[in-house]
Simulated assay, not measured.
Amino acid sequence: MFLASLLLAVAIGWIRGGSVKRIGRLPLRWVGLLPVPLILRSMLQHPSSVHLPWVVQGAEILQFVAYALLVVLAMVNRHLPGSGYLIGGSLANALVITANGGRMPVSEWAIHVAAHDLERAAAVARLAGGDSLTHELLGPETRLPWLADIIPLPRPFPFPSVASVGDVLIAVGLMWLVIAAMGTRHPAGQPVAPVGGTGRGRR
């Protein structure tokens, strides 16, 4: 979902006359921490590939750390366009995952809508068997079910999946950020204030 959102944002930014090069000039704070939650999430989603027993044993803690870092990164970068959506989405996902023991609940109905038969059966069996360290099937005991993965994204969506309200907010925030960072076509010689800057002109 996020990759599709980023690609769409780049396409919109390009149509508006923006430049991808400007994305690299974003005044990001604590950017060195960004890979940490991504690495932790990858390790939890593919524990057999890292061969580290403590990843399985500490899955709940690692999941909490990953999402807590995403919330912190979103908040320290609240000066950027779209940050409100990024903060809200990160908090929503962190809240529902923490409330359900470190795993994101997933609606079986949403899986049926989004996936093909074979993919659907495999996904449901994996979640029902407790084989996932990051997700579980949504059930009567699920807390905050309205924040869980309940939104199906079937084809023609380029990457069929199931998303949460938090995911949607994050996707909107990312699109806003990328489009704003790319800027628009402007008259030659006219200075462009950096995204998140003060925009002060010369005296």
Rank of each mutant, 00 (worst) to 15 (best):
L3T: 13
L7F: 07
I12L: 12
G18I: 02
V20Y: 03
V20L: 07
L26A: 07
V31K: 01
V31H: 02
S42I: 07
M43P: 02
Q45A: 15
S48G: 06
V50S: 05
V56D: 10
Q57L: 06
E60W: 11
L62G: 06
A66W: 02
A68M: 11
L70M: 13
V72D: 00
V76L: 12
R78W: 15
Y85R: 04
Y85G: 07
L86D: 08
I87K: 02
G88E: 12
L91D: 10
A92Y: 03
V96R: 06
P105N: 06
P105Q: 05
V106K: 00
V106W: 01
H116D: 15
A121H: 14
V124I: 15
A125Y: 03
R126W: 05
A128F: 10
G129L: 14
L133T: 03
L138Y: 08
L147W: 12
A148T: 11
I150L: 10
I151H: 04
I151F: 02
I151K: 06
L153G: 07
R155H: 14
S161I: 03
S161L: 10
V165M: 08
D167L: 10
A171E: 13
I179N: 02
A180K: 07
G183A: 02
R185C: 04
G189L: 07
P191N: 02
P194T: 07
G196D: 00
R200K: 09
G201R: 06
